[in-house]
Amino acid sequence: MEKTLSGEFRPKVFFDRLSKQLQIPAGANTIVVTHLLQDAQVYLRTLDKVSHILSVIPKPKSIDTTVLSTARTHFTINQSDRETLQTSNIVRDLLRSAAGRVVLFDIGGYFAPLVNDLVDSFPGKLVGVIEDTENGHQKYDRAQPLKVPVFSVARSPLKDNEDFLVGQSVLFSADAILREVGKLIQYLDCSVFGYGKIGGSIADHLSRRGAKVSVFDKDPIRRMAASNRLCKIPDREQIIKQSDVIFCATGGQVLKIHDFRALKPGCVVFSVTSSDDEMDITYLNAEYLAEDVTQHVTKFSSFSNHFYLVNKGNAVNFIHKAALGDFIHIVRGEMIYALKVLLEQPPDPGIHELTQKQRSELAELWLKTFASEPAHYSDLAVGGI
């Protein structure tokens, strides 16, 4: 009997339809780095349906404890941070234990420093890597020449929707944090380092709120695009010295100790990714007195200046769960599609993307599931995590 498809079931149905449509070859193993939040449950269930998940590695700053507890009953969970993963034998042991081919699902280039050595150590076993983020894409690019194919969805047009919403969620969290310390964002001089898809979204949402927005990007073409959207384009030093609020969205350690020394007194610093990717905070505690002002805001004071660092330099939007709606599912769907390509027709080593035709297939499926009203589905037996 056909039933109306409610919003609650749509993600499950999307991935159920996707797995049936793709017909991914059996026998593959996966190691999965992921944000372990509520919306990851159906994604992990689907990945375990089309492959065997050897281990789930949650990103340390984005773990929902309830989801973690549930996931432990279904998967081997390895709570290792990036440094531990890269300096231990965890990944090697997993590859050694795998019966069959292995694909690595990555967020942020966790495996980038290891991947070529892993190919040499386990010839024929590691099929490839699938990377989610621009930050990770850049890390694999720096690891060239690669010895295995890496599929990246970071620059996919299907991810534009998610990145736009990430910018929105960053601003939501930043606004809430600033209000906790008595500041209103629309009255502050706000600057954005990095005018990629997420940085551009932050700047756009700041402008909509009436804030005075400045942008710096090392790419002059991006700076010109920001100017076209009515952002001010001062030089880097001016942004450091004059901004009340700074958003770091580069993935390239844009702030170092000499930048912190030069910040306008009272500046509030936000990041959209991990602190070790976005800024070098190694020497802060040696030069500054750190004082927790609120649960998520730390004041750093020295004789020359003081500033506020939010969420210890980690992604601010994860303070408030970073909900991205249904658009996150198409990005994960693209990663699962890349798994099919790697297993059926692996390309040469290097960085690759899905074709326009393959992305269009995914978009049609997403629209059929999430944008059709009323939507119907005859089989809701798609299970939990």
Rank of each mutant, 00 (worst) to 15 (best):
P234S: 04
V129P: 03
S201L: 06
V181S: 14
A143C: 10
I177C: 11
I221G: 00
D204F: 07
A203Y: 04
L230V: 05
D235P: 11
P145I: 11
G182F: 11
A203H: 08
V150Y: 14
A226H: 01
Y187K: 15
F172W: 02
N135A: 08
Y140T: 05
S201F: 01
V150A: 13
R209D: 08
V215G: 01
E237F: 04
S214Q: 07
K147M: 14
D189M: 04
S156F: 07
G210S: 13
R236Y: 15
C190D: 06
R155K: 15
D163A: 15
V148L: 15
G136R: 05
S201P: 13
Q242A: 12
K147I: 15
P145M: 14
D204C: 09
S191I: 01
S227A: 07
K241T: 08
L206F: 07
F172P: 02
D160L: 07
D204K: 06
E131W: 13
P145E: 13
D132C: 09
G200Y: 00
V153N: 04
A225P: 00
D141R: 15
L146T: 12
Q138R: 14
N228K: 03
G196W: 02
A143D: 07
C231T: 02
V148G: 12
E237M: 10
V150D: 08
E134D: 09
E162F: 08
H205V: 05
F216Y: 15
G199R: 00
K241P: 04
P220S: 09
D244V: 04
K241S: 13
I233R: 00
A211T: 06
S173R: 00
D189A: 05
K183N: 08
E134Y: 09
I130H: 13
Q186C: 13
I130M: 09
R155C: 08
E180Q: 11
N135Q: 07
I221F: 00
K218Q: 15
D204S: 10
R142L: 09
F151A: 10
K212V: 08
L178T: 04
G199Q: 03
D235S: 12
A176I: 00
Y195S: 05
I221M: 01
P149A: 13
R222Q: 12
Q186D: 12
A174P: 03
P234T: 06
Y187I: 11
V170F: 06
K218H: 11
D175Y: 09
